[in-house]
C-alpha cells in the first residue's frame, strides 16, 4: 500500500502541482490509482510519487549509461558514440528484411534465424528435460542414478559441446542447435526435479487418503504444484540459450545475430556491433519478461 500523506498544506500542493505541470504528468498505473483515496488534490502528490519512485531511477540509469558511453567514445578512436550509432540504427532498421546473398541479409532475418535456432534447441531440451525432471523428482532411484552424470556434465561450458556436435551432425546448423539443447536442458531438469520433491506433503496425503490413481496425481497435484518451479527452469534455460547462441553462431557462421556481429567486426562496422549488443539484450529481455508473465499466470497463492 502506498502511504498517503494525511495533511498536505496548500502551499505544498501548489508547489507539487507546479512540479507536475513542468514534467508532463506520467500516467498513473491503474493498480496504483485505485488503491488511493480519491481526493483530487492528493492525486498530484501521487503522480509525483509515481514519477520519483518508478520512472526517474531507471531513466537516470539509462542516461548515465549513455553519458559514460559518450565519454569513452570521445576518448577512444574506433568506438562510435550514441549519436552515430543511432543514425546507423535508423538506416539498418529502415530495411530489416533485405537479402543480398547468403552472407548479407537484413537484421530482421538475422534475429529470426537466431530465434529459430534457440527455439528448436530449447524446445527439444524442454521435451526431454521436463519429463526427465519429473521422473527424477518422483523416483528416488532415478535421482541417485542421474545425480553423478548431471553434476559432471552441467558445469561444462556450452561451447565445449560444439566440436562434438560438428562431429556427429557433420553440419554447422544442427551443431549450433545441439549446443543450445545441451546448455538449456540442465536448468529445466534440475528445477522440475526440485519442484516435484517440494510438493507439499499435505497434498500427497490428500492424494493418499482420496486414493487417487497415478494419472490423477500427476495431472491434479504434481503438475500444477510443480509448474512454478518448472517455469523458473524454463526461464533460466531460455536465458542461457539466448546467451549461448551469439557465441555458437560466431563459430558456426551462417545467418544469425552472432555471426552478424563477427561479420561486422571483419568489416569494422563498429556501430553495427553496438546495435547488435542492444538487440541481443532487448530480445533477451523480452523473452524473459514474456516467461515471467506466463509464470505469474500459473502461480497460485
Amino acid at each position: 500500500m502506498i502511504m498517503q500523506k494525511p495533511e498536505t498544506s496548500k502551499v505544498d500542493m501548489k508547489a507539487e502541482k507546479a512540479a507536475n505541470d513542468a514534467i508532463e504528468q506520467p500516467p498513473i498505473p491503474a493498480a496504483l490509482s485505485t488503491g488511493v483515496v480519491t481526493k483530487t488534490p492528493s492525486q498530484f502528490s501521487t503522480t509525483a510519487r509515481v514519477f520519483f519512485q518508478w520512472l526517474l531511477p531507471p531513466a537516470i540509469g539509462l542516461l548515465l549509461l549513455l553519458a559514460v558511453w559518450t565519454l569513452i567514445s570521445h576518448q577512444s578512436q574506433g568506438l562510435p558514440g550514441p549519436l552515430s550509432t543511432f543514425k546507423a540504427a535508423i538506416v539498418l532498421f529502415s530495411d530489416p528484411f533485405y537479402v543480398n546473398g547468403p552472407n548479407d541479409q537484413g537484421i530482421g532475418w538475422n534475429i529470426l534465424n537466431s530465434l529459430q535456432r534457440v527455439g528448436l534447441g530449447f524446445s527439444m531440451a524442454a521435451l526431454v528435460g521436463i519429463p526427465l525432471g519429473f521422473m527424477i523428482g518422483r523416483f528416488e532411484f532415478l535421482s541417485r542414478m542421474t545425480a553423478p552424470v548431471i553434476s559432471l556434465l552441467r558445469p561444462v561450458s556450452p561451447l565445449a559441446w560444439l566440436p562434438i556436435g560438428l562431429l556427429v551432425f557433420k553440419a554447422a546448423n544442427p551443431a549450433a542447435i545441439w549446443v543450445i539443447f545441451i546448455s538449456a536442458i540442465w536448468p529445466m531438469i534440475i528445477n522440475t526435479a526440485v519442484g516435484v520433491s517440494k510438493v507439499p506433503q499435505d497434498y500427497m496425503n490428500v492424494a493418499k487418503v482420496l486414493n487417487l490413481g497415478e494419472w490423477k496425481i500427476v495431472t491434479k497435484i504434481l503438475f500444477p504444484s510443480v509448474l512454478p518451479y518448472m517455469l523458473t527452469g524454463v526461464r533460466l534455460s531460455i536465458g542461457v540459450a539466448w546467451l549461448v547462441i551469439v557465441a555458437a553462431e560466431m563459430l558456426t557462421g551462417g545467418v544469425g545475430i552472432g555471426f552478424w556481429v563477427w561479420d561486422e567486426w571483419n568489416n569494422l562496422v563498429v556501430e553495427h556491433i553496438i546495435i547488435a549488443i542492444f538487440v541481443v539484450g532487448l530480445v533477451g529481455l523480452l523473452l524473459e519478461q514474456g516467461l515471467i508473465l506466463l509464470a505469474k499466470r500459473f502461480t497460485y497463492e
Binding site: 497434498y203 490428500v206 497435484i221
Partner: peptide, 15 residues
C-alpha cells in the same frame, strides 16, 4: 489410506 477413513486436515489441504 483409503476413502473409508476420510481425513479433515488441520491446514485444510485444499488444492
Amino acid at each position: 489410506p483409503g476413502p473409508d477413513r476420510a481425513v479433515v486436515f488441520q491446514n485444510h489441504s485444499l488444492l
